[in-house]
């Protein structure tokens, strides 16, 4: 299994994602330049965090038109796994790989802190190794993370179990206080209809070892090994 991490101008978690795969998963990982048209044989694509194109216009709006995104979308359409982390989630939504949009945090603050997530769906290629209902701690660092979708889309996502992660409190309950950005239904991550594309605002690649405060992000990467 080979992992490709896209570098957009302004990406700043791309090297972290490469390190997470190479060091903690012991699998080859390469950076993919946004202007290229070549996935370099990657079986899995990571759209990393950062501020691609300075978040001009809307977060993710311009990155979506990068040449490499044609290849990423084609890869996703073939059923290839894609994970969008933070800015990558915003890009995946703008590109139509995932429904909805990420808006300015309701509290208007940039939130950089650990959050607690509850795993709602273990039937995606990135959560297969997780236990349903498990609680994971990972950092967030974003100003535009308020997941928003129209009522029909939201009902469809909930009805089909496509919410993958929700922000919860220490007791594992979905509360307003546990919601760092005002996301609808405390949604931190969603998946596509086939469970092959996942987007989330928290950073699993920054939670790969206890030294970093949490190793709970590992399970997302280990889940890949089960399928690939």
């Amino acid at each position: 299994m080979k992992v490709g991490v896209v570098s957009f101008p302004g990406s700043n978690c791309d090297e972290d994602a490469v390190l997470a795969v190479a060091e903690h998963l012991q699998r080859p990982a390469v950076l993919l330049w946004h202007k290229d048209h070549d996935l370099q044989g990657a079986d899995v694509v990571i759209l990393p965090g950062g501020f691609s194109y300075g978040d001009y216009l809307r977060a993710g709006a311009i990155a979506r038109f990068s040449p490499i995104m044609q290849e990423v979308v084609a890869h996703a359409k073939r059923g290839g796994p894609v994970i969008g982390i933070c800015n990558g989630f915003q890009i995946a939504c703008e590109a139509g790989l995932l429904p909805g949009a990420l808006l300015r945090n309701a509290n208007l603050q940039f939130r950089s802190m650990p959050v607690r997530l509850r795993v709602e769906n273990t039937d995606t290629v990135f959560t297969r190794r997780a236990r349903a209902g498990a609680q994971l701690t990972m950092p967030i660092a974003h100003g535009d993370g308020r997941y928003t979708a129209d009522p029909e889309t939201l009902a469809r996502l909930e009805g089909e179990g496509r919410v993958v992660f929700r922000y919860v409190d220490a007791a594992g309950e979905v509360t307003d206080a546990a919601n760092p950005n005002g996301a609808m239904h405390n949604i931190a991550g969603v998946t596509n209809a086939t469970g092959t594309v996942v987007g989330l605002m928290p950073h699993p690649e920054r939670a790969m070892e206890p030294l970093l405060g949490s190793a709970d992000g590992l399970v997302l990467f280990q889940s890949l090994l089960q399928t690939m």
Binding site: E94, T148, D150
Partner: peptide, 8 residues
């Protein structure tokens, strides 16, 4: 196609 997000 670009300038406005059709969702929001």
């Amino acid at each position: 196609r670009l300038l406005a997000n059709p969702v929001t």
